[in-house]
Amino acid sequence: MAERKKREKKIAEAPVAPAKPRARRKPAEAPAAPAKPRARRKPAEAPAPLPEAPAPLPEAPAAWRTPAPADWPALPVVTGHDHIVAVPIDARSALLYWELTSEGLTRARASLGGAEHGVELILRLYLIGRGDETEIRDAPVGVWLGHRRISFDHDGLRLTAAVGFRAGDGFVGVARSNPVQLPHAGPGSDPVRFVDASGARHPVPAGVETEALRRLSAAELFR
């Protein structure tokens, strides 16, 4: 009892942080799903180089300056240079986000040679599968600042994205993304190599089977 009183006294004298109620609410609402990109298959080709910027050019029309989405937090996200970034999310999806400046838009528009009708701001995806064939997919975006999640039917694609103007069959990019490799299911086909603690290479030890333990590991993984 004396010990208890001692504890009570000690606690009464010590500062205690006030307890804050912990609010719970439903998960953040997802924005509307983006329009499914249109797929167009083309023969293997390297992405077209982005045009050199002719300068100086007039300012982009105000109509192109779509405001940032309403749910975008009021933080300084505008960096002032044209870019698009690709981030792998899983084996079959990636996040793309981009920012285009009025200068970049104006230069790209001028490169279209003055075409006025049917000009559309799009995301162009260059997808390379295991067969090394490049598939090109376009998706209209319409905004100079945004992010979009793109899903694919196959895993393990190599992806590069560009954002720019499409007019008829022509495309002029304003920015091109980093290339990303989406994860694939199953091991790769690189040769099997062994190293010791010093990093020196060694041949595959005698008697080592290459499949049995992988199968055993996978059985544990999915049982």
């Binding site: 694939h184 091991p187 690189d190 099997v192 089977e209 290459t210 333990l213 992988r214 590991s217 993984l221």
Partner: peptide
Amino acid sequence: APHGLLDAASPPVFGVF
């Protein structure tokens, strides 16, 4: 993660062991 090893760039001889 286990599938990080099992799906490695070369077939993992020893699995996760």
